[in-house]
């Protein structure tokens, strides 16, 4: 069974894919309150992800969760570049770089700029 990674589209990310064929692939959740793109991950590749990040796990819906922010960010970057959801190989090519960036996340994640 394949697993999934959900990439949330906030306004900034949405603006980067607006007007592309990806727009049709947006999944609307919670009555349209949340936009996301869902990337399918074949099982042998999700195993690779679980191995690279010790906190990562598959939740009850089959989604890969508790993965580093750096990983999700890379997934979105590749989506925006390729204008396609078929990007997991591209992301895995960058795995070493992502693992490095993720290490810093254990100590610090910048808080959002809200009052």
């Amino acid at each position: 069974m394949p697993h999934y990674i959900s990439v949330i589209l906030d306004d900034e990310r949405y603006s980067k894919i607006k007007g592309t064929p990806l727009e049709e692939k947006i999944t609307y959740l919670f009555g349209g309150a949340l936009r996301s793109l869902i990337v399918e991950v074949p099982e042998e590749k999700s195993e690779k992800i679980l191995k690279a990040f010790d906190k990562a796990r598959i939740d009850s819906r089959g989604y890969i969760e508790d993965i580093p922010v750096a990983f999700r960010r890379a997934v979105f970057e590749e989506i925006a570049k390729a204008k396609s959801l078929d990007v997991i190989d591209k992301v895995l090519e960058r795995l070493d770089e992502i693992v490095e960036a993720a290490k810093k996340e254990d100590e610090y994640i910048p808080p959002p700029e809200i009052e």
């Binding site: 906030d10 959740l29 919670f30 009555g31 796990r57 508790d66 959002p112």
Partner: peptide, 23 residues
């Protein structure tokens, strides 16, 4: 169904996404 998954929410929080008020 669209579940309120705690880990999904943690992911959203870590990314700095302001969660919708229905969540």
């Amino acid at each position: 169904k669209q579940k309120f998954s705690g880990s999904f929410l943690r992911g959203m929080v870590a990314e700095g996404v302001f969660p919708p008020r229905v969540v």
